[in-house]
Amino acid sequence: MTDFSPPGFLQNPHVQSILASTRLRRLRIFPRVRRLQAATREVVLDCGNGVQLCGDYSAHDIPARGLVTLIHGWEGSSNSTYLLSAASALFAEGYDVFRLNMRDHGPSHHLNRDLFNSTRLDEMLAALRQIHANYPRDWHFLVGFSLGGNFALRMAARARSEGISLNKTIAICPLLDPVKTMAALENGWWLYEKYFVRKWKRSLIKKLRYYPELGYQDELPSFTSLAAMNAYFVPNHTEFERPEDYLQAYGIVGDVLTGLDSPAHVIATQDDPMILAEDLAQLAPSPMLSVECCQFGGHCGFVKNLKLDSWADERVVELINLARYPRKMAKGRKATSES
Rank of each mutant, 00 (worst) to 15 (best):
T2E: 13
P6W: 04
P7W: 06
F9E: 07
P13Y: 08
I18M: 09
A20W: 06
T22R: 13
L27F: 11
P31Y: 01
V33I: 10
L36N: 02
L36T: 09
L36M: 06
L36P: 08
A39R: 14
E42D: 14
Q52Y: 15
Q52S: 14
G55C: 02
S58F: 05
I62E: 10
R65N: 11
G66E: 07
L67M: 13
T69W: 12
T69N: 11
I71S: 12
H72L: 08
W74Y: 07
E75I: 07
G76N: 04
S78E: 10
Y82H: 11
L84G: 09
G94R: 09
F98H: 03
R99L: 13
M102W: 11
R103S: 01
H109V: 06
H110L: 11
H110W: 11
R113A: 12
S118R: 00
L121C: 03
E123I: 00
M124H: 07
L125Y: 06
I131V: 14
N134Q: 06
N134C: 08
N134E: 08
P136G: 04
R137W: 00
D138M: 08
D138Q: 04
F141N: 00
V143W: 04
N150M: 04
M155W: 04
A156L: 03
R158H: 15
L166N: 01
L166R: 00
P174T: 03
P174D: 07
L175W: 04
E186N: 05
E186V: 08
W190N: 01
R198C: 15
K199C: 15
W200R: 12
L204M: 11
K207H: 06
K207Q: 09
L208K: 03
Y210N: 09
Y210T: 02
Y211N: 05
L220I: 06
L226E: 08
N230I: 12
A231F: 12
Y232S: 05
Y232K: 05
P235R: 01
D245P: 06
D245C: 07
L247W: 14
Q248E: 15
Q248H: 15
A249D: 10
Y250C: 07
Y250T: 09
I252L: 05
T258R: 13
S262V: 13
H265T: 10
I267C: 09
T269V: 01
D271W: 00
M274Q: 06
E278T: 04
D279S: 05
A281Q: 13
L283S: 01
A284I: 05
A284P: 04
P285Q: 01
S286G: 05
S290C: 10
C294N: 09
H299C: 03
C300K: 00
C300V: 12
F302I: 03
N305P: 04
K307T: 02
K307Q: 10
S310M: 06
W311N: 02
W311L: 03
A312H: 02
N321D: 11
A330R: 00
K331W: 13
R333N: 13
R333Q: 13
S339M: 03
